[in-house]
Design a protein around this nucleic acid. Structure first.
Lengths: 205, 205
DNA sequence: CCCCTTATCTTGACGGCGACAAGATCAGAG
DNA sequence: CTCTGATCTTGTCGCCGTCAAGATAAGGGG
């Protein structure tokens, strides 16, 4: 694992560090994440990552950005088999959201507000924004109104996002014991029941 | 600040560490939190906290538990002037939830799933549980059914919790830019609009 | 073909960190 | 007064992120 490689130059260190970084993230979590361990895992000196990512924040930000892109893929993946019903498509996005949070809990935490990433990179900001735009698109298809054109629709979009995100976060952090004891499939069903009230028509009082 | 105190024994070190610990949490966040700095802030040697809290996890867990208790107070505080309408009381809890998240963002993060607390202490677990029981009580008053007696009511309770928590978290982590640009009071109004669909009657289909 | 510039990676050092062990100080019981 | 246990200090260890200086490779211009 720490075997010396034959060539002085690695060749594709940046990609290798990202791969190893995500592995370590999954193993040790964000708190136990260490640049030196990632470097050693790739078989490279402890200061090598600096050239590609600047500092630890840089690597973590890159990992988070990559996470947001895969996050989007997870939502789209669920939608692929969900037919063309607007309501079903939104629910599918929610399930994809949960899939991602469950399959990469540490990355999920890193992405949503871990302090070890300071100000988000440009790359990170756009990747995160794209993920929300996807949800906003689902909402627009369901309601027939763009969230950016109608405050009530925006409120609904934020509600949807908040509910899904809160559910995923509370599951992830172990705070929702009642639901946590169920198998994942049943958790999903439970989520859909809880989700249902947000799928109705807009109540523009 | 690091002045040597006259007596060898501090007298009330445990409480002083908790106070200084929360201060440091607010200043540097969870990631920058350091036992040694807390100790130095109290004017005590770097190893002194160990006797009262074991290790860093111990101090953080104690801070989180204290946080959950104050969290409950924040919800009750909002309810004090909310009349006796079940719906208004639940909304008030939600607003208190947001108040707390906004006023102690770092503590809020620590409480909900930071990895630097390992397995929750007994104290921490009960404090966290009491906070959820409060919300469950609000739901029960609104619906007339205990969440622990009716799965649909439980789903509703989880939905309420998830939405409020997700909203608070996304605000806290800066991911909800659209809402973040509004003043707090308007954020609260926005939250209530988004929250409304969850306040209706149970749809036990 | 050689040299030179530049990117890449290594080595070594610094201070700060959490944890541990051993010793100093104090308070209170007997 | 002494003994005992709780409380706090001092010193050390290994690990961490960051920085600076040097070694190595790669590629282009002569």
């Amino acid at each position: 694992m720490v075997r010396r490689r034959p060539t002085y130059h690695h060749g594709d260190l940046r990609a290798a560090l990202l791969r190893a970084g995500e592995e370590q993230l999954a193993r040790t979590g964000v708190a136990g994440f260490s640049l030196r361990q990632v470097a050693s895992r790739v078989g490279v000196s402890h200061a090598a990552p600096a050239h590609h990512f600047g500092d630890a924040q840089g690597l973590l930000a890159a990992l988070a950005a990559e996470g947001f892109r895969r996050f989007l893929v997870a939502m789209r993946h669920r939608q692929a088999n969900a037919g063309d019903n607007a309501r079903a498509l939104l629910v599918a996005s929610g399930l994809g959201y949960l899939d991602f949070a469950r399959s990469s809990p540490a990355l999920f935490r890193l992405m949503f507000g871990d302090e070890r990433i300071g100000k988000p990179t440009e790359e990170l900001a756009t990747a995160a924004n794209n993920a929300f735009l996807h949800l906003a698109g689902d909402i627009e298809r369901l309601l027939g109104v763009s969230a950016f054109a109608n405050p009530t629709a925006m409120a609904r979009a934020m509600a949807v996002w908040s509910l899904v995100h809160g559910f995923a976060s509370l599951l992830n952090s172990g705070h929702m014991r009642t639901v946590l004891s169920m198998p994942p499939e049943q958790q999903n069903h439970f989520f859909q029941v809880a989700f249902a009230p947000l799928l109705g028509p807009l109540d523009t009082d």
